[in-house]
Amino acid sequence: MEGEGLEVVEVSMKVNGKPVKAKVPARMLLVHFLRDVLGLTGTHVGCDTSNCGACTVIMNGKAVKSCTVFAFMADGAEILTIEGLAQNGKLHPIQEAFWENHGLQCGFCTPGMIMTLYDFLNRNPEPTEEEVRRAIEGNLCRCTGYVNIVRSALAAAEKMRAVGRWVKGGA
């Protein structure tokens, strides 16, 4: 066991459109790389058992729990975090919908929720309430009772349909 994961590896990836490169211990989790190395603290850690989804980011177009990925596994990947979602200072429709529908209280689960929905609404632009609930099943929220999160997701879907195309996160 001794020393396992202590060797240093070089990783490079694109995060929110910007290329980044760093030497990190092989055992460093992607979430810690984002938070502690890159200072992108919008991605949160809420558990140590991959249950809560607070750490969700988009990796190569798919939502992943960044606490279940080593930083080196993201070598060469494109990562989108909550910080990269607004485009030129304009909120993404999902962010707008959360704001308008009071989809957050303490805000701790929110970045993960939004990133999960970003992936989900991309694949399912016309979801039912039941489908939204299923989509965020891996994201825990202790504040909202999910009522307004579900409402926000449905409102976001509508906004995005109104624009007529998938709204990509900014870079």
């Binding site: 938070r35 992108l40 603290t41 919008g42 991605t43 949160h44 850690v45 975090t81 909550i82 910080e83 979602l85 607004a86 909120l91 962010q95 959360f98 704001w99 308008e100 009071h102 957050l104 805000g107 701790f108 929110t110 970045p111 939004i114």
Partner: peptide
């Protein structure tokens, strides 16, 4: 009225102790 605290929290710009 929608919340004044939300713009920072929905953009990842909140500040929690771990940050």
């Amino acid at each position: 009225i929608k919340r004044k605290e939300d713009p920072r929290l929905i953009t990842g710009k909140g500040l929690y102790v771990d940050d």
